[in-house]
Design a binder for these strands. Sequence first.
DNA 1: TCTTTAATCTGGTTTATACCAGATTAACAA
DNA 2: TTGTTAATCTGGTATAAACCAGATTAAAGA
Lengths: 236, 236
Amino acid sequence: MSQPQYKTIVDHIKNQIDVGTLTVQDKLPSERQLSDQFDASRITAREALLQLEKEGIIYRLNRRGWFVSPTRLTYDPTSPATFNEIIKQQQRTGTTTPLSTELSEAPSEVAQVMGLSEGSPVYLIRRLRCVDERPILLEHIYVDANLCPGLLKHDFSQSLTGIFKEHYQKGVTRTDVTMYPTSLDAEDASSLHVSPGSPCLEIRRCRFTEENQVLEYDLEFWRHDAVELKLSFEHQ
Amino acid sequence: MSQPQYKTIVDHIKNQIDVGTLTVQDKLPSERQLSDQFDASRITAREALLQLEKEGIIYRLNRRGWFVSPTRLTYDPTSPATFNEIIKQQQRTGTTTPLSTELSEAPSEVAQVMGLSEGSPVYLIRRLRCVDERPILLEHIYVDANLCPGLLKHDFSQSLTGIFKEHYQKGVTRTDVTMYPTSLDAEDASSLHVSPGSPCLEIRRCRFTEENQVLEYDLEFWRHDAVELKLSFEHQ
DNA sequence: TCTTTAATCTGGTTTATACCAGATTAACAA
DNA sequence: TTGTTAATCTGGTATAAACCAGATTAAAGA
């Protein structure tokens, strides 16, 4: 019935969170402090922390320490509500930071999904979205350049949907979504201020106009511990 | 520009999979063999393997070794298609194994979701679902005992929806779904034949009848690397 | 007071070693 | 041939010790 030593540390920290000794955004003791406290090696303490991270209970900031995760943002991928609306509903504060915008050529994979030929001109917009100061979502947005000429002159800290509607009279009538858990490569991890290889939820979203053209193709990388997807649907 | 050593091993294995030297279900060299091959410590080799596991590219069988992950099963949570239908569509083979069935009392959390009072009689069915011999989904299904008397005498290797329809004339008109990435506790991990703490995708599904009663409440634990969710919807 | 600098703290990565327990396999006995 | 047993292989867990590179903080200088 004996359990591994790292499990003891895991349970101890979980308990501290349950009883409120540790609360949201609190900094945990450092790996070295924990290993002293439990008379274990640093690797064992780290093992426990990595376990809690996998469960989404704690997270780390690069070389700054380990912290208790905030509650997950509840998000309905089928809802037309914008990111900012969702955040306000849940009494959070949100910010959107454009990281880069460029006119480039569609990579083969992207071209295929968008129904374009490889190398077609596409705008690529990279944005970082934060909730309560914490980066939780990285977006790579591809837009057919022929569909929205001059797109890059707009302000991308706002809703893209709004820009499409207002300046190009284009709305979305259908969306295809694919999602799966994976992990972040070095560059994306760096953008989200997490360690390379951190787990994430990848969501690919393809939005179509009434004319069945692909208006945008989004690659979204969510912190795995920051979001909970919730949807409801009727059957016939 | 130098990268950590474990990254070199990660890249090497990824490349082997790309070029086909390693293919689906193949066994990888053991941790000790890899550490010899790359002149690294076993911990470094293991670090690389854990990284690949997080990405969903490889998986491990307890004390048996590391293997290349099969392609993900594509699954539409809004589709009325049964598990077996989905699997057949994708040219896979599936099996369903009931692990346990019992009549018990609703835990407070479950009772709340199902709109029952705590301790109400509920059936709890635990099933394991495999694709191509590999366990990928563990289900905990709660059913209001008053709604489906005598439920446990049926065969749960079949579709539950079918049982509800055939024997109780009950159909589902609405489903609420919640999903988020987390990790498995020791017991659930053991059922799925994976190591405790392995990452997973947890899906909670609540199905309602026309009378707005909760017919069943499912807790699903998917191997994080075994599934890809795909859905499509129209906007008005 | 403000800024620069140096010391210190934290996680990130790595080596070498060890022992355990389950899984597999080879050897052996019936 | 079959069943049992023992050796071996594999991952699972753990210790001790290092060094590195950002992040933070305290100290020193302007």
